[in-house]
Every structure is written in C-alpha cells, then in structure tokens.
Design a protein around this nucleic acid. Structure first.
Lengths: 208, 208
DNA sequence: AGCATATATCACCACTCGGTGACATACGCA
DNA sequence: TGCGTATGTCACCGAGTGGTGATATATGCT
C-alpha cells in the first residue's frame, strides 16, 4: 500500500527564498565553492532547483543575494569584541580590529569558504563579496577612529592590507592543514603566538 | 576522398610521460585547479586519458609527479635574485628572500594556481606541494644564512610565516582583481609600495 | 463558488566528469 | 622473419552538472 502522500508544502515565496538562502549558506560552509551548485543546493534545501532560477535568476543572482545577506557580517561579528576600550593610539585600534577579525574569521567556516572562493574565481559576483568586506572593515575603523592618527610617514593602507592578507591566508591554510610554513596553527595557544607577532608588528610600525 | 590517414604517433613511454606532464603544467597554469582533470588534460596533451592512468596511476599520481617536477622551483627561481650580496644582518637576508619570493610568485601563474589549490583542497597530495615549498624556502634561508642570527627575543618562525602568508595572499588576489583591501596592486609601482612596507616591517622587527 | 495566477514539482535535455575494458598497431627481440 | 608485448586509441559506463518546458495544485481575488 502506498504511504500517505507527502504533506503538501506551504506556498510562500518569501519564506522559500529565505529557506533557500539559508541552505545556500550552509552548503557553501561545508562543501566549499567547488561543491556549490544548483543541483546540490536544490537537494540540500529540499526545493526544486527551478525555484532557484525563478527567485534568484540562477547561480549568479543567488551569489548576489548571498552577499546582501552577509553585508553586515563585519559589523555584527567584530563590534562585540571591540566594545571594551582600546588603547589611545591609532595602532591600538588597528591591533584590536585585526585580532577581532582574525578570531571572527577563524570561527566562521562560511566566511572562510567565501575568501577561498574569491581567491580562485575572478567573476564579478564573487569579487563584489571581497570588496564589500574590505569596505566594511574600512568603515568600521573610520567609525571607531575618532581623532587618532597613524604615525606620520606610515603608509597605513599598505600595512593594513598586508595584515589582512596575512590573517586571511593563515586562517585559510590552518583550516585545511593546521599549520603554515613551519608554524603550528591548531590550538588557541598556537594562535596566540601568531597574534602576538601581529601585535608586535603593528606596535613597532606605529611607534612614535 | 579521404585525406591521408593521420601520421602514426611515435611510441615512446618516457617522452609521452614528459609531454603529458608538461601539458598538465600548462593546463593548471591557465585553467586553475577547478578545470584540472583527466579529460581536460587528455584533450590538451593530445594523448588518450588511458595513458594518464597507465603512466601516473590517475590524477593523484599525476599531482605527485607534478610536485616532483617542481621540486627545485624555489631554488632555481630565487637564487638568481639573491646572487648579489645582501646586508650583513639576518633581517637583510630575510628581506631579500621575501622580496625575491614575491617577484618569483608574481611572475609564475602555475605556482599561483598551486597555492590557490592548496587553500581549497585539503587532500594529502596537494598539501605535500605546499609543505615542499615551505621546506625549500627554509633550506634556502639556512643555506644563505651563514652566522647571522635573528634579533634575540624575536619569534622568527612566526614573523616569517606571517610574511609569506601576506605575500601569497596579495599575489593571489592581485592576480584575480588587481587590488586588495583598498591597495592597488596592478603596476610595478603599486607593488613597490607593498614591498617597501614589507621591508619596513622586517627591518623594524629585526632592529637591535 | 469559480477562476486566474503564483507556487511547487517532475521530466527531460545536452554536456562533462572520472574511470574501465576491448581493440589496433608499432616496436624490439629471438 | 615472425611473434610477444608495450604503446596508443576507441567506445562505453554511471553519475553529476547547469538549464528548460510542461504540468499539477494551493492560494487569493472577483
């Protein structure tokens, strides 16, 4: 005898869109961009892939929507750790932001996969994701800066780019292999060592 | 009328192996790891994919062979730039090696694709590639070091890991988007700015 | 109540992928 | 010269991909 027919699904465009988007985040977080696609997402979300085309216009549109849904990531994940007062100098602020960013990224597999994606896919949809994150970081620093000034003669944009690059790279490689270039990056203590060095760099370059 | 039958291919195992390996490097260099596979390689090399299985035991074996063929990359690409005398300090040597590595990586699309691959694929074959490169860099520094010593109290492994991470990340993102986190990385002058900051970091941390 | 439409599902397409077994033929050795 | 084997080629498999058209049915409006 056939079982009871499957309960018909409630029909609600907005809710379905949200559900697909949520499933997309989960799928990307644990399969990575190489396993990210229409069929896999349809399987995972439980909705027919046709809906992905209807509601997002295909994968590209979905990535855009994914970007919008993560627009506030930097602000929401970094501000808590930045609530307590940092030291008075510009370097103190940069150090706090960088270390907060490191921890936030380290704890977020989805963001890691996004960064990895950006490194391998030059498509404009994906590039927009990184531009957006970079801008958010800049705005965060600007908002918290007050009247602090980088040391005169310091190329702050270059230094900050180098720091962010190092952080992202260390977090990504640590996620796949737990170490990088002879430096262990598995335990929290391992990471303390890396953080100490980052702090030292920032303080040294911002010294008066 | 049928054209002349295709000239029969010379049969030579070693030569074929080499040709496939060369085609594999070229394929990886311009398609990236996501477009890297048996079928694509067979198309590109002009040989039947069966030979890839027969001579390399599949993709995994091919990657291993690729690694062996690139074992000397660090030495051959960095030593020329390091021929001239560097300054007397340990920091001078590190700076020279880092900048040489940056330029070498920036000019080598294949190596860039390998690094990107390592960031997205935790498989042991791929990880071996990065371990091998890291070890080669370490050996190079050890060979050139002589009796120079890092400043006492400096965590040299941590600093070096951060520098290499930053370099690799900057080169990779620059290759796909020409910029990173508000820092332009397209022209040689752009890169001079990044290099200057790297040098400054190294000198500041190695100051007595 | 009845009807139009938006929502959801199914079935299919052409293509690519990694992988394997069968077959043809050039090469080297006896 | 003939024969065995290594080398190269072809044809196929199942599974997965992005993408599309047709179909069912729940929902909301008149």
């Amino acid at each position: 005898m056939p079982g009871t027919p499957p309960a018909p699904r409630a029909r609600n465009r907005d809710e379905t869109r949200r559900a697909i988007l949520t499933a997309a985040q989960a799928l990307l977080a644990d399969a990575g961009f190489s396993g990210f696609g229409v069929n896999a997402l349809a399987r995972r979300s439980g909705f027919d892939k046709q809906l992905i085309y209807r509601y997002f216009g295909g994968l590209d549109g979905l990535v855009d929507a994914l970007g919008e849904s993560l627009a506030g990531w930097v602000a929401t994940h970094l501000t808590p750790a930045l609530a307590q007062d940092t030291g008075p100098g510009y370097g103190d602020l940069v150090e706090a932001v960088m270390l907060a960013y490191l921890d936030a990224l380290r704890g977020d597999s989805l963001m890691q996969k996004l960064v990895a994606w950006e490194l391998s896919d030059p498509s404009p949809q994906v590039r927009r994701l990184s531009d957006q994150r970079a801008r958010a970081l800049g705005e965060l620093v600007a908002r918290l800066r007050g009247d602090r000034q980088p040391a005169p003669g310091l190329d702050a944009p270059a230094l900050n780019a180098i720091l962010i690059a190092a952080i992202q790279h260390l977090v990504l490689t640590a996620a796949t292999s737990g170490r990088f270039s002879g430096l262990a990056l598995a335990t929290d203590e391992d990471w303390d060592r890396a953080k100490a060095m980052l702090g030292r760099i920032i303080r040294a370059l911002n010294a008066p």
